[in-house]
């Protein structure tokens, strides 16, 4: 580990491709996070990083270590699964806090709650 091992050309191309795709999507997501005007639009940008951003980097890592150590290295898939499954938790927490604040302030752009505090 830690050494650069020779891997076949097709493997190197695949690793580079997925790494670049994943890294660029994460970067685009970060740029969007910085540039979008409202909170509700901004929550969409990082999901690029948590879907194919992480997916691409994960695949690149799996291909590289599978080829360089000559055995299947699949545990990266767990990172992907856990990131995907836990993202909605933080996202909903943030979004509901923002909704609550906007409703308390009477912000007209935000839809009201159909049932006042009894639905939860």
């Amino acid at each position: 580990m830690g050494l650069v091992v020779d891997i076949p050309l097709w493997g190197a191309i695949a690793v580079a491709f997925f790494l670049i795709v994943g890294a660029s999507l994460t970067l685009i997501g970060a740029i969007g996070f910085l540039r979008l005007p409202t909170f509700y639009e901004r929550i969409h940008a990082p999901t690029l990083g948590t879907s194919w951003g992480i997916g691409g980097i994960m695949l690149a890592s799996m291909i590289y270590f599978t080829l360089s150590t000559q055995r299947f290295v699949l545990h990266e898939i767990l990172i992907g699964i856990f990131v995907t499954v836990t993202t909605p938790v933080t996202l909903m927490l943030l979004a509901r806090a923002a909704l609550h604040r906007d409703r308390a302030e009477g912000n007209p752009d935000v839809p009201g709650k159909a049932h006042e505090e009894d639905g939860d």
Partner: peptide, 8 residues
């Protein structure tokens, strides 16, 4: 949520 562009 994991589909970018829509958030629950």
């Amino acid at each position: 949520t994991s589909t970018p562009g829509s958030a629950w």
